[in-house]
Structure formats: structure tokens, C-alpha cells
């Protein structure tokens, strides 16, 4: 059974259909990427799964259980954690307080343990624990955003455009860390415009176009697919 399954999910903003009949699944231990142009519905998909955007049709299943009507808090508690687009760290909070916010629904004890793991993955966050998050570099803020999401003890970690606005070298570093996170046992659902880098670390991918899934397959297949190369890899 898939960890996460979307069945004909529909999501609207007023009269505009953002998602029309989206169906896909994410299996335990996978890295799955959604690729697509601006406005294709990638972020809306993430928000709908997280419960930040209401569902207007279809179903979302977590381990076969229908969670379509669950509040965001319940979804976070059950391990669906989103790291939002654009490194939305809390700029006035210290690094540590940002991380603590990530573990908002966890007990203090759990947080202390998870904090060790996060510091191990991102040693720089430990050095800067007392610094205001807004003063970190772009790459460090992205690491903090990922670390903060990890504090929620995700089974499914959703990362919305982790490469946004970062230098290629930093992007490489971040994606290596995403792989490590998966190897530590967390399933990852990734949204990326930077399709090439994302496909390299992914197991499978789906291509979104104006609210529909137009293509799917293993990452290796999509990397060599002519359509994908033309539209998203700029070849």
C-alpha cells in the first residue's frame, strides 16, 4: 500500500480550477518529484496534501486511511510535514526557536532527541542556534527550513522548491542532504522547477501541466524523455 495516495483530487481558487483530477502515489522510502512550469499547480498540490488548502473533490489517503477532511494539525501529527516555498523561516526567531516551532506538536523530550539528529545533519545550525534566522545566508535558511520540517518527525516530508534562489553549489549540497534524509527513513515528496537536479536524486516523478498530470514514470525514464527534455531541461 502506498504511503500517500491522491485520488482524482480537485482544488479550486474561486472559479479557477487549480487542480483537475490529480491522481498519484508516493511509496514508503521513495523520493518522488513533481515537476512543472509556473502555475502548473505544484504548490497547490502540496498545500492540499498538507490541509492548508481545502479539497474540492477527490480523496487523499494516508496508508489507505482517508484524511481528506483532516485539519492541518492532525496531518502534521501523523507525519505529513510541509516545508513551504521560499524558505519561510521566521526571520525574527533564533535558529533554535525556529526549530522548536517545527516540533510544535511534539513533546519537549522528543524535540531534544530530534534536535540532535537535525544538528548532526546540519552542523551549521548548531553553531548559529542563538542567531536570528533572518541573518542567515540563503543556503543556511533553506537548511533551517528543512531542519524545522524534520523537527515535526515526518513520515512524508514535502519540500516546496528547496533550490529556489540558491547558488548551484548550495543546491547540490541541499539535494545531497535530501538523499541522506531519505536514507535515514523519511519519504520525500519534492516540488522543483530545477527538474534536472531533482530528477537525479528521485526515484519517480510526475509532470504537472495546468492542473493535470500529463506524464509520469521513473526519474531515469523522464530524464531521457524527449518531451521532458524539451519542456523542462532546456535541451
Amino acid at each position: 500500500m502506498a504511503l500517500l495516495q491522491l485520488e482524482q483530487v480537485v482544488s479550486n481558487y474561486g472559479s479557477i480550477n487549480a487542480l483537475r483530477d490529480i491522481s498519484f502515489e508516493v511509496n514508503e522510502g521513495e523520493i518522488v518529484t513533481l515537476i512543472g512550469a509556473n502555475g502548473a499547480g505544484k504548490t497547490t498540490t502540496m498545500h492540499t496534501i498538507a490541509g492548508l488548502k481545502e479539497l474540492n473533490g477527490g480523496k487523499i489517503l494516508l496508508n489507505g486511511q482517508d484524511i481528506s477532511r483532516w485539519e492541518t494539525q492532525a496531518r502534521v501529527k501523523n507525519g505529513i510535514v510541509l516545508s513551504p516555498e521560499g524558505r519561510q523561516v521566521f526571520p525574527d526567531f533564533s535558529v533554535l526557536d525556529n526549530l522548536m516551532m517545527g516540533g510544535y506538536l511534539q513533546t519537549n523530550e522528543t524535540n531534544q532527541q530530534t534536535l540532535e539528529t537535525v544538528y548532526e545533519l546540519f552542523p551549521r545550525l548548531k553553531e548559529r542556534a542563538a542567531q536570528a534566522a533572518g541573518t542567515l545566508s540563503g543556503g543556511e535558511q533553506q537548511m533551517l527550513a528543512v531542519g524545522r520540517a524534520l523537527m515535526g518527525k515526518p513520515r512524508l516530508l514535502m519540500l516546496d522548491e528547496p533550490s529556489m534562489g540558491l547558488a548551484p553549489l548550495i543546491v547540490k549540497e541541499i539535494f545531497a542532504l535530501i538523499q541522506r534524509i531519505r536514507d535515514l527513513g523519511t519519504t520525500v515528496l519534492l516540488v522543483e522547477q530545477n527538474a534536472r537536479v531533482a530528477l537525479r536524486i528521485s526515484d519517480r516523478a510526475y509532470v504537472l501541466e495546468t492542473g493535470r498530470i500529463v506524464l509520469s514514470g521513473t526519474a531515469a525514464e523522464l530524464l531521457v524523455s524527449e518531451d521532458v527534455q524539451k519542456a523542462y531541461l532546456g535541451m
Binding site: 498538507a50 492541518t72 519561510q88 521566521f90 526567531f93 522548536m100 510544535y104
Partner: peptide
């Protein structure tokens, strides 16, 4: 308190706060 952190996170970014599970 812990609640205070949640309150200030709403001020800084309510979407991110909601994504962390803050009501």
C-alpha cells in the same frame, strides 16, 4: 511560553505557522 512562540510565528508567517501545526 510555547504558545507565545506560536503567536509570534503567526505574525511572521501565518502559512508557515499553519504548516507547523499551529491552529
Amino acid at each position: 511560553s510555547r504558545v507565545g512562540l506560536a503567536i509570534m510565528s503567526i505574525r511572521d508567517d501565518d502559512l508557515a505557522a499553519a504548516a507547523m501545526g499551529v491552529n
